[in-house]
């Protein structure tokens, strides 16, 4: 069977940052594998390792510029078998990719790869849309489940038995027919660190790069009725009393407060 994992390189913002125009200044950003996708990759690799017939192929798909290959190689180093990356000048020039564009690009790859299972992070850490996986499933006409924090696969029966993490410490137990897209929640497993051997092997694993033409799409994929018009630092709503001084001083201020409140006996 084949497992397709959607992998996004996300931007992390430094504590001190600048906004230039409608986005964070490039100098304030660092890039990394999206945390949710790290769990999705791990889940796929564990499926592959648990399969005694060695018949599970794990393919990652990324929409992103060349810079994202570092992230893609990291997923390969952790055990994915090969990778696909889609990018195009038309994508680079657009303000941002909306939900529709992402779903359409990923669907073009998924239709080519015909996976039995697609694992996608619940959301990306940078734009936190939380909608791409389900939109992709609908576009592919397959089943799905969002916010999965445990799963068991019965490949013969073609069913994934999953737990969906609802609010308030409640989990929903659900059976999903394959093929399906599952959006993976953090905590479902313990993502591994890439081993040195894995990192070396990753350099030799196939990483195919496609442009829009290659995947049968054109520039209209970026057309969007949604336009970003502003980005700003929210005004702090806080009015916290901040204790100043050395750690000894501030700790003493807090200690005094806790004594006054009766939290701790003086």
């Amino acid at each position: 069977m084949k497992v397709l994992v959607t992998v996004k390189e996300v931007a992390e913002v430094d504590d001190e940052f600048r906004i230039s125009g409608l986005d964070i200044d490039e100098g304030s950003l660092e890039y990394d594998l999206n945390e949710w996708d790290d769990y999705a990759v791990e889940e796929a690799v564990q499926l592959s390792e648990a399969d005694e017939t060695d018949d599970v192929e794990v393919v990652t798909v990324t929409v992103g510029p060349e810079r994202a290959e570092e992230t893609v190689r990291m997923a390969l180093a952790k055990g994915a078998d090969r990778a696909v990356r889609v990018w195009d000048d038309a994508l680079a020039e657009t303000q941002f990719l909306d939900l529709d564009a992402k779903a359409e690009l990923l669907a073009a790859i998924a239709e080519e790869e015909e996976p039995d299972l697609v694992l996608s992070g619940v959301q990306a850490a940078d734009d936190t849309n939380g909608a791409t996986g389900v939109a992709l499933a609908e576009r592919l006409g397959v089943e799905w489940a969002a916010v999965v924090n445990a799963m068991e696969l019965d490949a013969d029966a073609g069913v994934a038995s999953v737990r969906r993490e609802l609010e308030g410490g409640v989990e929903e137990l659900t059976d999903v027919e394959l093929p399906a897209v599952l959006t993976i929640q953090t905590g479902i497993n313990e993502p591994r660190y890439a081993s040195l051997r894995g990192i070396r092997q990753a350099q030799r694993k196939p990483l195919e790069v496609y442009d829009l033409d290659d995947v049968g799409l054109d520039e209209s994929v970026v057309d969007s009725p949604v336009e970003r018009t502003d980005m700003y630092e929210p005004e702090s709503e806080g009015n916290a009393t901040v204790w100043e001084g050395s750690p000894e001083d501030t700790a003493e201020s807090l200690a005094e407060f806790l004594r006054d409140e009766g939290v701790v006996d003086a």
């Binding site: 939900l99 529709d100 389900v134 939109a135």
Partner: peptide, 19 residues
């Protein structure tokens, strides 16, 4: 919500409306 995000993206796709 967790359930909202489990059906609204699919509905938006079907209706072809931006979400």
């Amino acid at each position: 919500s967790v359930n909202g995000l489990d059906y609204v993206p699919a509905v938006a796709e079907r209706l072809d409306v931006p979400l």
